[in-house]
Design a binder for these strands. Structure first.
Lengths: 198, 198
DNA sequence: TTTTCAACTGAACATCTGTTCAGTTAGATG
DNA sequence: CATCTAACTGAACAGATGTTCAGTTGAAAA
């Protein structure tokens, strides 16, 4: 059986997303360098050449996955529209971070592990977006300092420390584990709040 | 110019360590799957085949790097011999973790990023060692709870959270940066202490 | 019905991969 | 001096790599 093109209707709007989904899953599992275009193609159900209808090259595939993840993150954060005093906004940020990241473990994994496989200009673009995200937290910490409710010796270091703590969650949390997400959320919020409070 | 074997004395005690150093550096930089045996050999200054005098295969090279890092970590922790009440031991653990990890960014990077490239039995061995390390911190947190000086809703979650926070430091700290190590140590100890205190 | 063309195949390209091994070299040994 | 052998070379193996592209397919348009 050969020549399976156009089996049942136009496929580009099905195959396209499937390529991204499959690439994300395989890269999260084995790493970018360890996954071949032929492996991705095989899981999608096409030949390797067909992938190049959806990405100019392998590097762009990785960059697209990371860029869209970061864009989703920044858009969702903007939509969360944190308000109130610094403590309320810190709680909002903490809960937002956990709720956004926990259901996206593959994206988180790829976005944090495959930075070194990005071409320099792509790396710079992702880093800029990550920096934007970090700056939101740092602004909250600075505001809390100004309000006199937070006591952090160095807002930049505290920002990095808190984000590392929150993101680390994605590396060990497994759905259906001992603790539900809202329980986890409460525990982390407790740690975060106390860490920065006076 | 060909046939350079045994240039100036026995080399195995020089080449052996150089293979490990070079492999560690290159794997930290580009990732295990992205580094070839020929690249490592070229930087060491030998042909690819010569590497097999020092490792049975590429997988063992990775495993050796990770196992020796974890063994060093556990030995150093035991040598630190944390004593006193839970608060003193928590401070000891925090400062030990930072002092041990900061000068070893390549080892930390490889040990946390390349877990998925380990063969299953090797993965299990590394995970067991990591678990041993985590358990030391968890014991301290539990002791602090018993002493009534700590208030952590879940010692396991707090353990993972604190270790993620501390280890994350290695991912952004650069020697010669804005802050010296002892400054960093103080800032992190402040965050850790407050996070778990009543 | 014939034509069109997006979506795909399958083969090819040059190059790289981990690993093996017969052969070479030169310092150490007797 | 000759001998030994640890340490290495260089070639080879079978297969995988990203990417290109002429050709094929079949549903939809004319």
């Amino acid at each position: 059986m050969q020549g399976m093109a156009r089996k049942q209707g136009s496929h580009s709007d099905i195959t396209g997303p499937r390529v991204l989904e499959t690439a994300l899953r395989l890269i999260a599992q084995h790493g970018f360098a360890a996954v071949s275009m032929r492996q991705i193609a095989a899981e999608v159900g096409v030949q390797a050449g067909a992938l190049y209808n959806y990405t100019p090259d392998k590097q762009s595939l990785l960059f697209d996955l990371m860029r869209s993840h970061m864009a989703d993150l920044l858009n969702a954060l903007a939509a969360a529209d944190l308000q109130g005093d610094a403590l309320a906004r810190l709680e909002g940020f903490t809960r937002f971070h956990i709720r956004f990241h926990l259901p996206r473990s593959d994206q988180v994994f790829v976005s944090y592990m495959e930075l070194r496989n990005l071409a320099p200009e792509n790396f710079a673009a992702i880093e800029a977006m990550r920096r934007d995200y970090e700056d939101v937290l740092e602004d909250i910490l600075r505001a809390g300092e100004a309000e006199g409710i937070f006591a952090v010796p160095d807002t930049r270091v505290a920002t990095m420390a808190l984000i590392a703590m929150l993101t680390g969650l994605s590396h060990w949390y497994r759905e259906g584990g001992r603790l539900a997400m809202n329980k986890i959320e409460a525990i982390y919020w407790d740690l975060v709040r106390k860490a920065v409070s006076v």
